[in-house]
Simulated scan of single mutants.
Amino acid sequence: MVEVFKTNVEQPEHSEMLIDQIMNQIPNSQINFDLEDCDKILRIEAESVSNHIIIEILYQNGYHAEVLI
């Protein structure tokens, strides 16, 4: 399963910290940010992804995320 989110993350060091937190919730997943994209894309590939958990992790760190359809 692949989920793609629009975010407002801009700094590479912040994206790395968020990736670490997401990896704690979804081990064995592949996660990356495309901070060059105008939507600051977060892409997660895993067996199962809870959109609610991802959005909550970003929110708790002061960021916004929404699922791109």
Rank of each mutant, 00 (worst) to 15 (best):
Q60H: 11
S15K: 06
S29W: 02
V4H: 00
I44Y: 09
Y63F: 15
A46H: 12
E36H: 04
L18C: 06
I54R: 09
E10I: 12
S48K: 15
T7R: 03
E3C: 03
I26S: 02
I31F: 04
N28R: 09
F33M: 10
S50F: 02
N61Q: 12
N51T: 11
I53Q: 13
I57W: 15
E10F: 05
A46E: 12
S50K: 15
M17I: 09
Q30S: 11
H64A: 13
S29F: 00
I22L: 12
S15Q: 08
I22F: 01
A46P: 13
E66H: 08
M17A: 04
N28M: 02
N32L: 08
I55D: 07
N32T: 10
H64G: 06
L42Q: 09
E3P: 00
M23P: 02
S15H: 02
S50L: 07
S29I: 03
D39G: 05
L42E: 01
E45C: 05
N24W: 08
E45F: 00
E10L: 11
V2T: 10
N51M: 04
S50H: 07
M23S: 10
I19D: 00
I57C: 08
N61A: 07
Q11V: 01
G62I: 08
Q25Y: 07
V9P: 14
L68Q: 12
I44E: 09
T7K: 04
L68F: 04
V49R: 12
I22P: 02
H52Q: 12
I55Y: 01
M17E: 07
I57E: 14
A65Q: 10
E45P: 15
M23N: 07
L18T: 06
E13R: 06
Y59P: 00
R43L: 03
Q11N: 05
H14F: 05
M23W: 05
L68C: 05
D39T: 13
I19K: 07
V4T: 13
D34T: 05
Q25T: 06
D37L: 06
K40M: 08
E56H: 10
Y59D: 14
S29L: 03
E13T: 14
C38A: 14
I44C: 05
R43D: 08
D37E: 13
N28Q: 07
Y59A: 12
N24R: 12
D39Q: 14
E13K: 09
V67P: 00
K40L: 06
I44V: 14
K6V: 09
I53M: 15
N61D: 12
D34L: 01
N32S: 14
I53Y: 07
Y63H: 10
S29H: 07
E13C: 11
Q25A: 03
Q30I: 05
Q21H: 05
H52D: 11
V67G: 00
N51Y: 01
P27D: 06
Q30D: 11
Q25M: 12
Q30P: 10
H14C: 05
I22G: 00
G62M: 03
